[in-house]
Design a protein around this nucleic acid. Structure first.
Lengths: 208, 208
DNA sequence: GGAATGAATAATCAACGAATCGTTCAATCG
DNA sequence: CGATTGAACGATTCGTTGATTATTCATTCC
């Protein structure tokens, strides 16, 4: 890690602190400059702009979540459907707890998602990769019968969309969401076990 | 229909015209009063307020959609899974086409949903009733094996949420949405055929 | 001479007063 | 005397203006 990387990380740490406490909008580049003992103009040697600093913070959190979820893949004694269950519920609980613990960081992530669609798509892609491997494991173990794991992973994301977007469940208590997710999960797993033969005809590379 | 009902319908027709053309916000009570040859104050003898007029328009549209979807229940020669397919795709196409034909009425419906949560819940409930009967028909015909059709209908709605909310798919073309819905549909139907034994433990009467 | 500053610039935001609008109701109409 | 009007009133929205902030870059520092 070069000294330039050190400075970038210093800016990110300062920004994370500010964004979590005051929110993205209430934090100024002057604030971040003060916190990092440099001039406002100098911040632009390390990041293209304010939004890029926020995006980096959100990306780090997203990567951490995906890494955490990928540990499900190596849990001993867990069947594919149990791993899928772990994935969906831990993802929901993580999102719900982040909303309660750091509401302003969630608000920041929503701003990034609105301004930088690719950021959200990348996050979805990371999680979908873990889902794909769970579905493949199900195929290998004989529990699932899925022709196209990649496509089915995408379908699982589509079917559980409601539990990934804070703004779609803010008014609901966690227990209620878990009950509903359990219901959707049961139908999905029954379907995966029974066998899904379809696949994506001409997969689009870019999601909107 | 009394003369008071006549006047209410006259107001609704005028409002629908204005809301569709200019939008909810750009339409004033003075406009509606002019269109119906009465004073602004008189409108309040027929409706509690402006939002109530809009809600009535949205409710009529919602009821019409549910009635249209309920005709799926009596199509001869259609299996339960074919009916479920018909339901999901006709609902999506209807929503998509309404968005293209009357974007300002969709915007109005979003305002109602935000201000009057019960309106949206009622709409969901109407459609869920049709879904429940499709699932029950599947049970009776032996195609499905579902313990609690009411709960599963709710789960189907949850799993296909993305295709019911214009703001969640605005940037996607219809063909892409249909392909994705087909994928989710295949997994759901495979699950319903395989059998879903769970049910809602203590069903909440009120959705958020 | 590359790194950094901090003021200038352009863009955006917030406050404020004016204008508009949803709703109410005293006065008038029929 | 019930139905209706249309102006008043309080609430909300909008346009303008000053303040603030993201970003740039001429100048200075090391």
């Amino acid at each position: 890690m070069t000294s330039q990387d050190d400075t970038r990380q210093k800016i990110i740490n300062a920004a994370k602190e500010r964004f979590a406490h005051y929110g993205y909008g209430k934090t100024t580049m002057a604030d971040l400059a003060d916190d990092t003992q440099m001039s406002p103009g100098n911040l632009y040697r390390y990041f293209p702009g304010k939004l890029d600093i926020a995006e980096e913070i959100a990306r780090e959190a997203s990567i951490r979540t995906a890494e955490q979820l990928s540990r499900i893949l190596t849990r001993p004694g867990r069947s594919a459907s149990e791993r899928l269950h772990d994935f969906l519920f831990e993802d929901l609980r993580e999102t719900f707890q982040t909303l309660e613990r750091d509401p302003k960081l969630v608000e920041m992530a929503q701003i990034i998602t609105a301004e930088r669609p690719h950021f959200h798509n990348e996050g979805q892609k990371r999680e979908r990769e873990v889902l794909r491997r769970i579905v493949e494991y199900g195929n290998v173990s004989g529990e699932f019968s899925v022709a196209d794991p990649e496509f089915v992973a995408e379908m699982i994301q589509s079917a559980t969309l409601k539990f990934s977007y804070p703004q779609l469940f803010t008014r609901l208590p966690l227990a209620r969401l878990e009950r509903e997710l359990e219901g959707v999960f049961q139908i999905l797993v029954a379907g995966l076990k029974a066998g899904v033969s379809i696949s994506e005809p001409h997969r689009d590379v870019v999601e909107a």
